[in-house]
Nucleic acid binder design. Sequence first.
DNA 1: GTGATCCATGATACTACACA
DNA 2: TGTGTAGTATCATGGATCAC
Length: 518
Amino acid sequence: MNDNGALGRTTDIRIRQPQLDCKSKRCIINLDKPRFEKIKVRHNLAYNIITERSALNLLAKSEQIESELCLTEKGTEIVQLLNNKQVGSFCKEKKLNIFVLEQLLNQEGDKLITWQQLNKMRGKKGAGRKPVWFSAIEGKTLANQHTRVVKTAYKTSENNFMACKVILKAISEDRRVQDWVIFKNKDQEHSYKFGKVISKPKESTYTLEHWNKTNNSEGYEIGLIKYSGCEINEKGSENSDESSYKIAKGFKVKKRAVPRQMISKVRKSDSMYNSETKIYKLNCPKEALFPLEVAMRTKPYQEVAVILGSRVDEIINKYIENNGTKIKLKAIARRLEKYRDLQIITDGSVDIEATDVGKKRLGIRFVVSRINNQAIEEEVSFAGALEDWPKSTRAELGAIGFALLVVPCGSIVRICTDSSSAISVIEKSSLVVETRNRLKVRNNHIGWLIQECCKDKNLVLRLYKVKAHSDEKFNKIADSLAKQGRILGITSRLKEFWSNSLETYPVWNTTVIDRPVR
DNA sequence: GTGATCCATGATACTACACA
DNA sequence: TGTGTAGTATCATGGATCAC
Protein backbone atom coordinates (compact mmCIF):
# COMPACT_ATOMS: atom_id res chain seq x y z
CA MET A 1 0.00 0.00 0.00
CA ASN A 2 2.87 2.36 0.73
CA ASP A 3 4.73 1.53 -2.46
CA ASN A 4 4.63 4.27 -5.10
CA GLY A 5 5.60 1.93 -7.90
CA ALA A 6 3.86 -0.83 -9.79
CA LEU A 7 3.28 -2.88 -6.64
CA GLY A 8 1.43 -0.02 -4.95
CA ARG A 9 -0.71 0.62 -8.03
CA THR A 10 -1.56 -3.09 -8.29
CA THR A 11 -2.56 -3.15 -4.63
CA ASP A 12 -4.70 -0.05 -5.18
CA ILE A 13 -6.56 -1.80 -8.03
CA ARG A 14 -6.93 -4.97 -5.95
CA ILE A 15 -8.50 -2.94 -3.14
CA ARG A 16 -10.69 -0.91 -5.50
CA GLN A 17 -12.21 -3.95 -7.25
CA PRO A 18 -13.64 -5.72 -4.14
CA GLN A 19 -15.00 -2.37 -2.94
CA LEU A 20 -17.12 -2.23 -6.10
CA ASP A 21 -17.91 -5.94 -5.84
CA CYS A 22 -19.25 -5.65 -2.30
CA LYS A 23 -21.05 -2.38 -3.09
CA SER A 24 -19.30 -0.36 -0.43
CA LYS A 25 -19.29 3.42 -0.60
CA ARG A 26 -16.08 3.52 1.47
CA CYS A 27 -12.68 1.90 1.01
CA ILE A 28 -12.80 -1.67 2.34
CA ILE A 29 -9.89 -0.95 4.68
CA ASN A 30 -12.42 0.95 6.83
CA LEU A 31 -15.12 -1.72 6.91
CA ASP A 32 -16.07 -3.36 10.16
CA LYS A 33 -16.66 -7.08 10.74
CA PRO A 34 -20.49 -7.18 10.30
CA ARG A 35 -20.12 -5.37 6.97
CA PHE A 36 -17.52 -7.89 5.79
CA GLU A 37 -19.90 -10.70 6.72
CA LYS A 38 -22.66 -9.30 4.52
CA ILE A 39 -20.90 -10.33 1.32
CA LYS A 40 -17.85 -12.42 0.54
CA VAL A 41 -15.60 -11.38 -2.33
CA ARG A 42 -13.72 -14.27 -3.90
CA HIS A 43 -10.45 -14.47 -5.78
CA ASN A 44 -8.98 -11.24 -4.45
CA LEU A 45 -5.83 -11.48 -2.37
CA ALA A 46 -5.99 -7.92 -1.05
CA TYR A 47 -9.56 -8.47 0.12
CA ASN A 48 -8.63 -11.73 1.84
CA ILE A 49 -5.69 -10.10 3.60
CA ILE A 50 -7.86 -7.21 4.81
CA THR A 51 -10.59 -9.55 6.12
CA GLU A 52 -7.97 -11.68 7.89
CA ARG A 53 -6.43 -8.53 9.31
CA SER A 54 -9.85 -7.48 10.56
CA ALA A 55 -10.40 -10.89 12.20
CA LEU A 56 -7.03 -10.54 13.99
CA ASN A 57 -7.82 -6.94 15.05
CA LEU A 58 -4.72 -5.62 13.29
CA LEU A 59 -4.74 -2.00 12.16
CA ALA A 60 -3.82 -0.90 8.61
CA LYS A 61 -4.36 2.67 7.49
CA SER A 62 -3.67 4.82 4.46
CA GLU A 63 -5.44 8.17 4.55
CA GLN A 64 -4.59 8.84 0.93
CA ILE A 65 -6.06 5.57 -0.40
CA GLU A 66 -9.06 5.79 1.93
CA SER A 67 -9.90 9.29 0.79
CA GLU A 68 -9.39 8.46 -2.90
CA LEU A 69 -11.62 5.41 -2.71
CA CYS A 70 -14.41 7.03 -0.69
CA LEU A 71 -17.28 7.39 -3.19
CA THR A 72 -19.39 9.54 -0.87
CA GLU A 73 -19.48 10.45 2.80
CA LYS A 74 -23.24 10.87 2.83
CA GLY A 75 -25.90 8.40 1.83
CA THR A 76 -27.49 5.18 3.09
CA GLU A 77 -25.79 2.08 1.75
CA ILE A 78 -28.27 -0.17 -0.01
CA VAL A 79 -26.54 -3.24 1.41
CA GLN A 80 -27.64 -2.11 4.89
CA LEU A 81 -31.29 -2.29 3.82
CA LEU A 82 -31.13 -5.84 2.44
CA ASN A 83 -30.91 -9.30 3.95
CA ASN A 84 -28.12 -11.70 2.98
CA LYS A 85 -30.01 -13.28 0.11
CA GLN A 86 -31.01 -9.91 -1.36
CA VAL A 87 -27.44 -8.64 -0.98
CA GLY A 88 -26.32 -11.53 -3.20
CA SER A 89 -28.72 -10.41 -5.90
CA PHE A 90 -27.68 -6.77 -5.46
CA CYS A 91 -23.96 -7.51 -5.73
CA LYS A 92 -24.47 -9.38 -9.00
CA GLU A 93 -25.56 -6.08 -10.51
CA LYS A 94 -22.46 -4.61 -12.20
CA LYS A 95 -23.84 -2.28 -14.84
CA LEU A 96 -25.85 0.37 -13.02
CA ASN A 97 -23.21 1.59 -10.54
CA ILE A 98 -25.66 1.89 -7.66
CA PHE A 99 -24.28 2.01 -4.12
CA VAL A 100 -26.51 4.23 -1.97
CA LEU A 101 -30.25 4.69 -1.63
CA GLU A 102 -30.01 8.36 -2.60
CA GLN A 103 -29.07 7.31 -6.14
CA LEU A 104 -32.51 5.72 -6.40
CA LEU A 105 -34.38 8.80 -5.14
CA ASN A 106 -35.49 11.75 -7.26
CA GLN A 107 -33.80 15.16 -7.17
CA GLU A 108 -36.04 16.34 -4.34
CA GLY A 109 -35.21 13.23 -2.36
CA ASP A 110 -38.77 12.22 -1.57
CA LYS A 111 -39.70 9.66 -4.26
CA LEU A 112 -38.19 6.36 -5.34
CA ILE A 113 -37.61 5.98 -9.07
CA THR A 114 -38.81 2.82 -10.81
CA TRP A 115 -36.64 -0.03 -12.09
CA GLN A 116 -37.37 0.96 -15.67
CA GLN A 117 -36.51 4.61 -15.04
CA LEU A 118 -33.20 3.62 -13.46
CA ASN A 119 -32.26 1.47 -16.43
CA LYS A 120 -33.28 4.08 -18.99
CA MET A 121 -31.31 6.82 -17.25
CA ARG A 122 -28.25 4.58 -17.21
CA GLY A 123 -28.68 3.94 -20.93
CA LYS A 124 -29.70 0.28 -20.40
CA LYS A 125 -32.60 -1.56 -21.91
CA GLY A 126 -34.14 -2.66 -18.64
CA ALA A 127 -35.42 -5.86 -20.17
CA GLY A 128 -36.31 -8.75 -17.93
CA ARG A 129 -37.77 -9.05 -14.50
CA LYS A 130 -37.30 -6.60 -11.73
CA PRO A 131 -34.55 -8.00 -9.48
CA VAL A 132 -35.40 -9.05 -5.91
CA TRP A 133 -33.09 -6.49 -4.34
CA PHE A 134 -34.96 -3.64 -6.03
CA SER A 135 -38.32 -5.09 -4.96
CA ALA A 136 -36.93 -5.36 -1.41
CA ILE A 137 -35.86 -1.69 -1.47
CA GLU A 138 -39.35 -0.74 -2.66
CA GLY A 139 -40.95 -2.80 0.11
CA LYS A 140 -38.72 -1.31 2.76
CA THR A 141 -38.70 2.36 1.76
CA LEU A 142 -42.00 3.17 0.04
CA ALA A 143 -44.72 4.83 2.09
CA ASN A 144 -47.10 4.90 -0.88
CA GLN A 145 -46.79 2.36 -3.71
CA HIS A 146 -48.82 4.48 -6.12
CA THR A 147 -47.13 7.87 -5.69
CA ARG A 148 -43.76 6.24 -4.84
CA VAL A 149 -43.22 8.68 -1.96
CA VAL A 150 -40.74 7.17 0.48
CA LYS A 151 -41.04 6.99 4.26
CA THR A 152 -39.87 10.07 6.15
CA ALA A 153 -36.80 8.27 7.50
CA TYR A 154 -35.47 7.76 3.98
CA LYS A 155 -36.17 11.25 2.60
CA THR A 156 -33.20 13.54 2.11
CA SER A 157 -33.30 16.84 3.97
CA GLU A 158 -31.92 18.92 1.10
CA ASN A 159 -31.57 18.82 -2.65
CA ASN A 160 -30.48 15.30 -3.60
CA PHE A 161 -27.45 15.77 -5.81
CA MET A 162 -26.81 12.05 -5.93
CA ALA A 163 -29.99 11.51 -7.95
CA CYS A 164 -29.63 10.02 -11.42
CA LYS A 165 -29.81 12.62 -14.17
CA VAL A 166 -30.51 12.38 -17.85
CA ILE A 167 -27.54 13.41 -19.96
CA LEU A 168 -28.82 15.57 -22.79
CA LYS A 169 -27.24 15.30 -26.22
CA ALA A 170 -26.61 17.71 -29.07
CA ILE A 171 -29.30 17.81 -31.74
CA SER A 172 -28.49 15.35 -34.51
CA GLU A 173 -26.91 16.71 -37.68
CA ASP A 174 -29.05 14.25 -39.63
CA ARG A 175 -31.94 16.30 -40.96
CA ARG A 176 -34.22 13.29 -41.00
CA VAL A 177 -34.01 12.67 -37.27
CA GLN A 178 -36.85 14.27 -35.36
CA ASP A 179 -35.13 15.01 -32.05
CA TRP A 180 -37.02 15.65 -28.85
CA VAL A 181 -35.59 18.77 -27.23
CA ILE A 182 -36.17 20.91 -24.17
CA PHE A 183 -36.04 24.68 -24.40
CA LYS A 184 -36.70 27.63 -22.14
CA ASN A 185 -39.66 29.95 -22.39
CA LYS A 186 -38.27 33.46 -22.23
CA ASP A 187 -41.11 34.82 -20.11
CA GLN A 188 -40.78 32.16 -17.42
CA GLU A 189 -37.20 32.16 -16.23
CA HIS A 190 -36.83 28.57 -15.05
CA SER A 191 -39.65 26.83 -16.84
CA TYR A 192 -38.80 24.48 -19.67
CA LYS A 193 -40.86 23.29 -22.60
CA PHE A 194 -40.73 20.18 -24.71
CA GLY A 195 -40.42 20.28 -28.46
CA LYS A 196 -39.98 17.92 -31.34
CA VAL A 197 -37.83 19.09 -34.24
CA ILE A 198 -40.07 18.56 -37.24
CA SER A 199 -38.02 20.35 -39.85
CA LYS A 200 -34.33 21.15 -40.20
CA PRO A 201 -34.02 23.40 -43.22
CA LYS A 202 -30.60 24.56 -44.35
CA GLU A 203 -31.45 28.15 -43.41
CA SER A 204 -30.86 29.65 -40.01
CA THR A 205 -33.84 28.21 -38.14
CA TYR A 206 -35.31 24.87 -37.13
CA THR A 207 -39.01 24.39 -36.69
CA LEU A 208 -40.16 22.84 -33.46
CA GLU A 209 -43.46 21.26 -32.68
CA HIS A 210 -44.47 22.30 -29.18
CA TRP A 211 -45.56 19.42 -26.92
CA ASN A 212 -47.17 20.28 -23.64
CA LYS A 213 -46.51 18.55 -20.34
CA THR A 214 -49.54 16.80 -18.87
CA ASN A 215 -50.04 15.35 -15.44
CA ASN A 216 -51.65 11.96 -15.34
CA SER A 217 -52.48 9.04 -13.17
CA GLU A 218 -51.22 6.16 -15.29
CA GLY A 219 -47.90 5.62 -13.59
CA TYR A 220 -45.73 8.05 -15.49
CA GLU A 221 -44.85 11.45 -14.15
CA ILE A 222 -44.79 13.52 -17.33
CA GLY A 223 -46.95 12.90 -20.35
CA LEU A 224 -46.47 14.83 -23.57
CA ILE A 225 -49.39 15.90 -25.69
CA LYS A 226 -49.19 17.95 -28.87
CA TYR A 227 -50.14 21.54 -28.10
CA SER A 228 -52.49 23.42 -30.34
CA GLY A 229 -52.68 27.22 -30.05
CA CYS A 230 -49.13 27.71 -28.94
CA GLU A 231 -48.58 30.69 -26.65
CA ILE A 232 -44.89 31.04 -27.28
CA ASN A 233 -44.82 31.20 -31.01
CA GLU A 234 -45.31 34.91 -31.44
CA LYS A 235 -41.66 35.31 -32.33
CA GLY A 236 -41.37 32.41 -34.66
CA SER A 237 -44.70 31.94 -36.35
CA GLU A 238 -47.05 34.50 -37.76
CA ASN A 239 -50.02 32.23 -37.32
CA SER A 240 -50.93 32.03 -33.63
CA ASP A 241 -53.01 28.92 -34.19
CA GLU A 242 -50.03 26.84 -35.18
CA SER A 243 -48.29 24.75 -32.60
CA SER A 244 -44.90 25.31 -34.16
CA TYR A 245 -42.06 27.39 -32.83
CA LYS A 246 -39.05 28.47 -34.81
CA ILE A 247 -35.70 28.53 -33.16
CA ALA A 248 -32.29 29.82 -34.09
CA LYS A 249 -29.99 27.24 -35.58
CA GLY A 250 -27.26 28.20 -33.11
CA PHE A 251 -29.51 26.32 -30.70
CA LYS A 252 -28.21 23.04 -32.08
CA VAL A 253 -24.80 23.51 -30.51
CA LYS A 254 -26.40 23.18 -27.09
CA LYS A 255 -26.86 19.74 -25.66
CA ARG A 256 -30.60 19.77 -25.23
CA ALA A 257 -31.82 16.77 -27.18
CA VAL A 258 -33.44 14.19 -24.93
CA PRO A 259 -32.02 10.66 -25.53
CA ARG A 260 -34.42 8.62 -27.59
CA GLN A 261 -34.96 5.90 -24.99
CA MET A 262 -36.18 8.49 -22.46
CA ILE A 263 -39.39 9.16 -24.41
CA SER A 264 -41.75 6.42 -25.50
CA LYS A 265 -45.25 6.27 -26.82
CA VAL A 266 -48.14 5.56 -24.45
CA ARG A 267 -50.15 2.53 -25.54
CA LYS A 268 -53.60 3.39 -26.72
CA SER A 269 -55.10 1.08 -24.14
CA ASP A 270 -53.26 2.99 -21.35
CA SER A 271 -54.14 6.44 -22.60
CA MET A 272 -56.72 8.57 -20.81
CA TYR A 273 -57.30 10.51 -24.04
CA ASN A 274 -59.25 9.42 -27.08
CA SER A 275 -57.63 6.87 -29.36
CA GLU A 276 -56.73 9.51 -31.98
CA THR A 277 -54.60 11.57 -29.57
CA LYS A 278 -50.90 10.73 -29.56
CA ILE A 279 -49.39 10.70 -26.10
CA TYR A 280 -45.73 10.21 -25.26
CA LYS A 281 -44.38 9.62 -21.79
CA LEU A 282 -41.10 10.53 -20.18
CA ASN A 283 -39.27 7.50 -18.79
CA CYS A 284 -37.70 9.35 -15.88
CA PRO A 285 -38.73 11.66 -13.02
CA LYS A 286 -39.16 15.22 -14.27
CA GLU A 287 -36.38 16.43 -11.97
CA ALA A 288 -33.89 14.22 -13.81
CA LEU A 289 -34.35 16.49 -16.83
CA PHE A 290 -34.92 19.78 -15.03
CA PRO A 291 -32.46 19.85 -12.12
CA LEU A 292 -32.17 23.65 -12.40
CA GLU A 293 -35.83 24.12 -11.51
CA VAL A 294 -35.36 22.03 -8.39
CA ALA A 295 -32.09 23.71 -7.49
CA MET A 296 -33.78 27.12 -7.59
CA ARG A 297 -36.57 25.93 -5.30
CA THR A 298 -34.33 24.31 -2.73
CA LYS A 299 -31.30 25.70 -0.96
CA PRO A 300 -28.42 25.78 -1.01
CA TYR A 301 -28.31 26.59 -4.71
CA GLN A 302 -25.61 24.80 -6.66
CA GLU A 303 -24.79 25.02 -10.30
CA VAL A 304 -26.16 21.99 -12.08
CA ALA A 305 -25.57 20.21 -15.34
CA VAL A 306 -28.38 21.60 -17.47
CA ILE A 307 -28.49 25.34 -17.99
CA LEU A 308 -30.18 26.60 -21.09
CA GLY A 309 -29.07 29.99 -22.28
CA SER A 310 -30.45 32.75 -24.46
CA ARG A 311 -29.39 33.62 -28.01
CA VAL A 312 -26.98 36.21 -26.56
CA ASP A 313 -25.41 33.46 -24.42
CA GLU A 314 -24.98 31.28 -27.48
CA ILE A 315 -23.24 34.11 -29.34
CA ILE A 316 -20.90 34.69 -26.39
CA ASN A 317 -20.10 30.96 -26.40
CA LYS A 318 -19.46 31.14 -30.11
CA TYR A 319 -16.70 33.76 -29.86
CA ILE A 320 -15.16 33.44 -26.39
CA GLU A 321 -13.04 30.54 -25.24
CA ASN A 322 -12.56 31.17 -21.50
CA ASN A 323 -15.31 30.08 -19.13
CA GLY A 324 -14.65 32.85 -16.58
CA THR A 325 -15.04 35.55 -19.22
CA LYS A 326 -18.16 33.88 -20.60
CA ILE A 327 -19.80 33.91 -17.15
CA LYS A 328 -18.92 37.60 -16.62
CA LEU A 329 -20.22 38.65 -20.02
CA LYS A 330 -23.42 36.64 -19.64
CA ALA A 331 -24.08 38.28 -16.26
CA ILE A 332 -23.75 41.72 -17.87
CA ALA A 333 -25.95 40.62 -20.78
CA ARG A 334 -28.72 39.63 -18.31
CA ARG A 335 -28.64 43.14 -16.81
CA LEU A 336 -29.00 44.74 -20.22
CA GLU A 337 -31.50 42.37 -21.84
CA LYS A 338 -34.48 44.70 -21.31
CA TYR A 339 -32.94 47.66 -23.14
CA ARG A 340 -32.87 48.41 -26.87
CA ASP A 341 -30.80 51.61 -27.03
CA LEU A 342 -27.40 51.65 -25.39
CA GLN A 343 -24.42 53.97 -25.34
CA ILE A 344 -21.15 52.30 -24.39
CA ILE A 345 -17.72 53.84 -23.80
CA THR A 346 -14.88 51.49 -24.70
CA ASP A 347 -11.17 51.69 -24.12
CA GLY A 348 -8.19 49.45 -24.72
CA SER A 349 -4.56 49.57 -23.67
CA VAL A 350 -1.31 47.67 -24.14
CA ASP A 351 0.96 46.65 -21.31
CA ILE A 352 3.99 48.77 -22.25
CA GLU A 353 5.89 47.79 -19.11
CA ALA A 354 6.18 44.13 -20.06
CA THR A 355 9.35 43.55 -22.01
CA ASP A 356 8.56 40.06 -23.27
CA VAL A 357 6.28 40.48 -26.27
CA GLY A 358 4.79 37.04 -25.68
CA LYS A 359 3.66 38.04 -22.18
CA LYS A 360 2.16 41.43 -23.08
CA ARG A 361 -1.52 41.67 -22.30
CA LEU A 362 -4.13 43.89 -23.89
CA GLY A 363 -6.33 45.63 -21.37
CA ILE A 364 -9.92 45.91 -22.58
CA ARG A 365 -12.86 47.50 -20.83
CA PHE A 366 -16.21 49.02 -21.53
CA VAL A 367 -18.73 50.98 -19.50
CA VAL A 368 -22.40 51.40 -20.35
CA SER A 369 -22.98 55.14 -20.05
CA ARG A 370 -26.54 55.71 -21.27
CA ILE A 371 -29.57 53.45 -21.63
CA ASN A 372 -32.51 54.53 -23.78
CA ASN A 373 -30.77 57.93 -24.05
CA GLN A 374 -30.78 58.47 -20.31
CA ALA A 375 -27.86 58.40 -17.90
CA ILE A 376 -27.82 55.33 -15.69
CA GLU A 377 -27.33 55.25 -11.96
CA GLU A 378 -25.78 51.84 -11.52
CA GLU A 379 -22.43 51.12 -13.16
CA VAL A 380 -22.43 48.35 -15.75
CA SER A 381 -18.87 47.66 -16.82
CA PHE A 382 -16.37 45.02 -17.81
CA ALA A 383 -12.60 44.90 -17.44
CA GLY A 384 -10.44 42.12 -18.77
CA ALA A 385 -7.43 41.30 -20.83
CA LEU A 386 -6.86 39.80 -24.23
CA GLU A 387 -4.11 37.46 -25.37
CA ASP A 388 -1.97 37.52 -28.52
CA TRP A 389 -0.66 40.30 -30.79
CA PRO A 390 -0.12 43.34 -28.48
CA LYS A 391 -1.33 46.17 -30.71
CA SER A 392 -3.26 49.18 -29.44
CA THR A 393 -5.84 49.08 -32.25
CA ARG A 394 -6.45 45.40 -31.51
CA ALA A 395 -7.07 46.32 -27.85
CA GLU A 396 -9.57 49.01 -28.86
CA LEU A 397 -11.30 46.63 -31.26
CA GLY A 398 -11.35 43.94 -28.58
CA ALA A 399 -13.14 46.30 -26.19
CA ILE A 400 -15.73 47.15 -28.86
CA GLY A 401 -16.16 43.48 -29.77
CA PHE A 402 -16.70 42.46 -26.13
CA ALA A 403 -19.19 45.31 -25.67
CA LEU A 404 -21.19 44.12 -28.68
CA LEU A 405 -21.32 40.59 -27.27
CA VAL A 406 -23.35 41.68 -24.23
CA VAL A 407 -25.92 43.94 -25.89
CA PRO A 408 -29.39 42.51 -26.59
CA CYS A 409 -30.36 41.31 -30.07
CA GLY A 410 -32.03 43.91 -32.27
CA SER A 411 -30.75 46.92 -30.31
CA ILE A 412 -29.18 50.22 -31.33
CA VAL A 413 -25.63 50.48 -29.97
CA ARG A 414 -23.68 53.73 -29.80
CA ILE A 415 -19.98 53.02 -29.22
CA CYS A 416 -17.77 55.87 -28.00
CA THR A 417 -14.06 55.23 -28.51
CA ASP A 418 -10.97 57.38 -28.59
CA SER A 419 -9.42 55.29 -31.35
CA SER A 420 -10.05 56.57 -34.84
CA SER A 421 -8.05 53.65 -36.26
CA ALA A 422 -10.47 51.17 -34.63
CA ILE A 423 -13.40 53.02 -36.20
CA SER A 424 -11.58 52.93 -39.53
CA VAL A 425 -11.02 49.13 -39.33
CA ILE A 426 -14.69 48.49 -38.55
CA GLU A 427 -15.87 50.77 -41.35
CA LYS A 428 -13.48 49.11 -43.81
CA SER A 429 -14.59 45.62 -42.73
CA SER A 430 -18.24 46.53 -43.23
CA LEU A 431 -17.56 47.61 -46.82
CA VAL A 432 -15.69 44.43 -47.74
CA VAL A 433 -17.88 41.44 -48.45
CA GLU A 434 -15.55 38.99 -50.20
CA THR A 435 -13.64 36.69 -47.87
CA ARG A 436 -10.44 37.18 -49.86
CA ASN A 437 -10.58 40.96 -49.40
CA ARG A 438 -11.61 40.70 -45.78
CA LEU A 439 -8.34 38.93 -45.05
CA LYS A 440 -6.44 41.89 -46.49
CA VAL A 441 -7.65 44.19 -43.69
CA ARG A 442 -5.44 44.50 -40.61
CA ASN A 443 -6.88 43.08 -37.36
CA ASN A 444 -9.35 41.22 -39.52
CA HIS A 445 -10.02 38.55 -36.85
CA ILE A 446 -11.69 40.99 -34.43
CA GLY A 447 -13.05 43.09 -37.29
CA TRP A 448 -14.75 39.99 -38.63
CA LEU A 449 -16.05 39.16 -35.16
CA ILE A 450 -17.63 42.61 -34.89
CA GLN A 451 -19.30 42.29 -38.31
CA GLU A 452 -20.54 38.76 -37.61
CA CYS A 453 -21.79 39.78 -34.17
CA CYS A 454 -23.76 42.72 -35.65
CA LYS A 455 -25.22 40.34 -38.25
CA ASP A 456 -26.01 37.57 -35.75
CA LYS A 457 -27.70 39.99 -33.37
CA ASN A 458 -29.23 42.28 -35.95
CA LEU A 459 -27.60 45.32 -34.33
CA VAL A 460 -27.58 48.93 -35.49
CA LEU A 461 -24.00 50.00 -34.73
CA ARG A 462 -23.02 53.67 -34.52
CA LEU A 463 -19.42 54.67 -33.82
CA TYR A 464 -18.39 57.98 -32.24
CA LYS A 465 -14.86 59.31 -31.80
CA VAL A 466 -14.40 60.90 -28.37
CA LYS A 467 -11.46 62.74 -26.88
CA ALA A 468 -9.09 60.51 -24.97
CA HIS A 469 -9.10 61.01 -21.17
CA SER A 470 -12.00 63.48 -21.34
CA ASP A 471 -13.69 64.54 -18.18
CA GLU A 472 -16.89 62.68 -18.72
CA LYS A 473 -17.80 60.50 -15.72
CA PHE A 474 -17.95 57.19 -17.58
CA ASN A 475 -14.84 57.93 -19.64
CA LYS A 476 -12.99 58.31 -16.34
CA ILE A 477 -14.37 55.01 -15.17
CA ALA A 478 -13.21 53.38 -18.40
CA ASP A 479 -9.76 54.85 -17.88
CA SER A 480 -9.62 53.68 -14.28
CA LEU A 481 -10.55 50.16 -15.38
CA ALA A 482 -7.62 50.18 -17.81
CA LYS A 483 -4.91 49.10 -15.43
CA GLN A 484 -7.29 46.95 -13.41
CA GLY A 485 -8.33 44.99 -16.51
CA ARG A 486 -4.82 44.52 -17.79
CA ILE A 487 -3.31 43.47 -14.47
CA LEU A 488 -6.13 41.74 -12.61
CA GLY A 489 -8.73 40.91 -15.27
CA ILE A 490 -9.22 37.40 -16.63
CA THR A 491 -7.18 36.86 -19.76
CA SER A 492 -9.50 35.93 -22.60
CA ARG A 493 -8.88 34.26 -25.89
CA LEU A 494 -11.09 34.56 -28.94
CA LYS A 495 -12.23 31.39 -30.62
CA GLU A 496 -11.22 30.71 -34.20
CA PHE A 497 -14.84 31.21 -35.10
CA TRP A 498 -14.18 31.89 -38.77
CA SER A 499 -13.10 28.28 -39.30
CA ASN A 500 -16.75 27.78 -40.32
CA SER A 501 -16.21 30.13 -43.26
CA LEU A 502 -12.61 29.32 -44.14
CA GLU A 503 -11.17 25.90 -44.77
CA THR A 504 -7.63 27.12 -44.08
CA TYR A 505 -6.30 30.21 -42.34
CA PRO A 506 -2.82 31.33 -41.28
CA VAL A 507 -1.72 30.35 -37.78
CA TRP A 508 1.51 30.93 -35.89
CA ASN A 509 2.12 28.87 -32.73
CA THR A 510 -1.62 28.06 -32.50
CA THR A 511 -2.43 31.80 -32.73
CA VAL A 512 -4.40 33.13 -35.69
CA ILE A 513 -2.48 35.67 -37.78
CA ASP A 514 -5.01 38.43 -38.28
CA ARG A 515 -3.20 40.67 -40.71
CA PRO A 516 -2.55 40.46 -44.44
CA VAL A 517 -0.18 37.64 -45.33
CA ARG A 518 1.62 37.54 -48.63
C1' DG B 1 -33.22 5.89 -56.87
C1' DT B 2 -31.51 4.84 -52.34
C1' DG B 3 -31.57 4.72 -47.64
C1' DA B 4 -33.18 6.21 -43.06
C1' DT B 5 -37.00 6.93 -40.07
C1' DC B 6 -41.71 6.42 -38.37
C1' DC B 7 -45.47 3.55 -37.12
C1' DA B 8 -48.22 -0.65 -35.66
C1' DT B 9 -48.19 -5.39 -34.76
C1' DG B 10 -46.71 -9.96 -33.61
C1' DA B 11 -42.78 -12.92 -32.68
C1' DT B 12 -38.74 -13.57 -30.27
C1' DA B 13 -34.75 -12.59 -27.29
C1' DC B 14 -33.27 -11.24 -22.95
C1' DT B 15 -33.05 -11.15 -17.96
C1' DA B 16 -33.79 -12.65 -13.29
C1' DC B 17 -35.55 -15.95 -10.44
C1' DA B 18 -36.98 -20.62 -8.53
C1' DC B 19 -35.89 -25.08 -8.06
C1' DA B 20 -33.79 -29.56 -8.74
C1' DT C 1 -24.91 -25.70 -12.69
C1' DG C 2 -28.75 -26.52 -15.71
C1' DT C 3 -33.60 -26.05 -16.83
C1' DG C 4 -38.07 -24.01 -16.84
C1' DT C 5 -40.92 -19.88 -16.07
C1' DA C 6 -42.43 -15.09 -16.06
C1' DG C 7 -42.18 -10.50 -17.43
C1' DT C 8 -40.39 -7.21 -20.40
C1' DA C 9 -37.98 -5.03 -24.25
C1' DT C 10 -36.48 -5.54 -28.74
C1' DC C 11 -36.59 -7.17 -33.35
C1' DA C 12 -38.67 -8.06 -37.88
C1' DT C 13 -41.84 -6.71 -41.14
C1' DG C 14 -43.91 -3.71 -44.63
C1' DG C 15 -46.00 0.57 -46.11
C1' DA C 16 -45.51 5.58 -45.98
C1' DT C 17 -42.68 9.51 -45.89
C1' DC C 18 -38.75 12.29 -46.33
C1' DA C 19 -33.77 13.63 -47.07
C1' DC C 20 -29.94 13.08 -49.80
